[in-house]
Nucleic acid binder design. Structure first.
Length: 542
DNA sequence: CTAGGGTTAG
């Protein structure tokens, strides 16, 4: 490619400057790697194309996609003149790099820096620049800053509204997202399919099927009934709510039926539709249904298999312990597996105690996503559950060396409109004495019913009795105990945890729901669990 | 001539 570019570019030297700049842009659009970018950058300087602002802007955009954020910034900073387009493209580059190429903290630091300049130049009131900033902060998990960027926009259009709605929906603030949707309508801004996609996603996160139905009705009235974006969001909401919050296998079959109905009505399913379907099947254990669809995807349904489809299938086999089949799928994938695939496989190895494969999978994850704390935690868990303390220590040291921070678990529960937060072994709550006394009582009652603490879940190399204690002061259990002592008998308890729910806490919640006759709804990092009469809606399958 | 928002796998 570079050689071809060079040849074609030297030909264009003869033509007018106008002609060579549009030709250069068409070459930029064929760029496929950082090396291509640098090569074209060289040509750009050689042909003095920096004199044409729109060419420089294209170069920044292309660098933003393929090259490092430092290199992109360098191009941006050496432009003779920067306009609104340049600033927008630079912020988009920051947002994109926040998505895993760089560490989020680094992005946030650099992003805030550029935000200051944007503000000083008064560009933050522009809808394009502002919306890019919303997206950047959202990607970095900074909801307040995203909101500030939104507020600064003078003429907020449908894209700005959708961007901020999405940030709230993706950060467990579905209620705020829905409020903003109403506000947007009151402001006279017309929602489009992308907006509805986000609004429906907010409903899914809230597990609010009722509001979801109402909004679905709105979309039909407005003529979005055939939009695959909106339809996929609706299928997703149904899949999420029915499989995770309300029921067992029968309801996942409802998703399968809904899917069939969709096809009957002439709505063509796309890759995303199938990802939702396969995922619902996987979580409900509908192996045959999933496998049949996966196998016939290309031939019968005309949809190319994606990374996500493979992820669902690896998960499906992995969770039932068919590690060989899962591995086979990874091997036959037509593209290199990403870190998510290996994380799923690693989770399955951990669940089924396959150290050898687990270690290999963990190494792949560490290589592909060195900034993520999850693989380190999973690997150290794996070693810990096998009692390999030296190996476990090595992983933890590596984590410190690389500056990877483990996210601290935190559970919240709402009582009388007030949100109470708990960390592990937290004693900061005003009613700590009562909470710990309740935990003691629960411990005895649960053991009488047959509860055995899963001490192999505890990370540290400590004595059995101490392990049991460490488990018992998990944030989930503290939040539950507080809920029990502070609400009237029979009140359902709603707990939200920022990470995946711990397996021992999951077991404990089942016992507690039975012993105390309470319904417990726990919202985990990406799932709902509904505990009732000693059982969980996930069927211990999550 | 160039710029901003979306669903899905964990």
């Amino acid at each position: 490619m570079p050689a071809a570019m060079e040849a074609s570019l030297s030909l264009s030297q003869q033509s007018t400057p106008q002609g060579s700049s549009s030709f250069f842009v068409s070459l930029l659009q064929q760029c496929k790697s950082a090396a291509d970018c640098r090569h074209l950058h060289h040509q750009y300087l050689l042909h003095s194309l920096h004199a044409t602002p729109f060419v420089s802007n294209h170069l920044v955009q292309t660098y933003g996609i393929f090259a490092s954020i430092e290199d992109t910034f360098c191009v941006f900073a050496t432009m003779p003149r920067r306009n609104i387009f340049s600033w927008t493209s630079m912020v988009v580059a920051y947002a994109r790099h926040g998505l895993g190429v760089c560490s989020i903290n680094k992005m946030l630091t650099l992003g805030k820096h550029i935000h200051t300049y944007i503000h000083l130049n008064g560009f933050d009131c522009n809808a394009y620049v502002g919306t890019a900033l919303i997206d950047m902060y959202g990607t970095c998990g900074c909801v307040e800053m995203a909101r500030a960027a939104f507020d600064a926009i003078r003429a907020k259009d449908v894209v700005s509204w959708t961007a901020i709605l999405t940030v709230y929906a993706q950060h467990d603030e579905g209620a705020t997202a829905l409020e903003l949707y109403i506000k947007m309508k009151n402001d006279g801004v017309l929602a489009n399919d992308v907006t509805y996609c986000s609004v429906l996603n907010a409903c899914a996160n809230l597990a609010d099927l009722e509001v979801g139905r109402r909004i679905h009705a709105d979309t039909c009235t407005l003529g979005f009934w055939s939009s695959s974006l909106v339809n996929n969001a609706i299928l997703n909401i149904t899949a999420l709510v029915t499989t995770y919050a309300y029921a067992y296998h029968g309801h996942a079959k409802h998703v399968v039926r809904l899917f069939a109905k969709m096809k009957q009505e002439g709505v063509k399913p796309d890759e995303v539709t199938f990802t939702s379907l396969l995922s619902a099947c996987s979580h409900a254990g509908l192996i045959d249904e999933a496998s049949r669809n996966f196998r016939s995807l290309k031939e019968d349904q005309g949809v190319a298999r994606t990374m996500e489809h493979y992820a669902c299938m690896v998960d499906l086999h992995g969770r039932v312990g068919q590690l060989g089949e899962a591995e086979e799928l990874i091997r036959e994938m037509p593209f290199p597996p990403n870190h998510v695939i290996w994380e799923i496989f690693l989770g399955a190895c951990r669940m089924h105690k396959d150290m050898e494969h687990g270690q290999f999978a963990a190494e792949q994850v560490l290589q592909l996503a060195p900034d993520k704390s999850a693989p380190y935690v999973l690997l150290s868990n794996l070693y810990a559950s096998e009692g390999k303390w030296e190996e476990e220590l090595k992983i933890r040291k590596l984590m410190i060396e690389r500056g990877v921070q483990k996210q601290v678990g935190c559970s919240s529960i709402e009582v009388d409109g007030v949100l109470h937060h708990f960390m592990v072994r937290d004693r900061s709550h005003l009613r700590t004495e009562e909470i710990y006394a309740e935990l003691e009582r629960l411990n005895l009652e649960m053991k009488a019913e047959g509860y055995v603490p899963e001490t192999n879940q505890v990370l540290h190399d400590v004595e059995e009795e101490l392990k049991e204690q460490l488990l018992f002061y998990h944030s989930e259990k503290l939040a539950l105990a507080f809920g029990l002592v502070s609400t009237p008998r029979g009140t359902p308890l709603h707990v939200v945890k920022n990470l995946r729910i711990c397996s021992d806490c999951h077991t404990a919640a089942k016992y507690i729901s039975k012993i105390r006759g309470r319904e417990i709804i726990m919202r985990d990092y990406n799932r709902f669990h509904r505990f009732k009469d000693g059982l969980c809606s996930c069927g211990d399958y999550w």
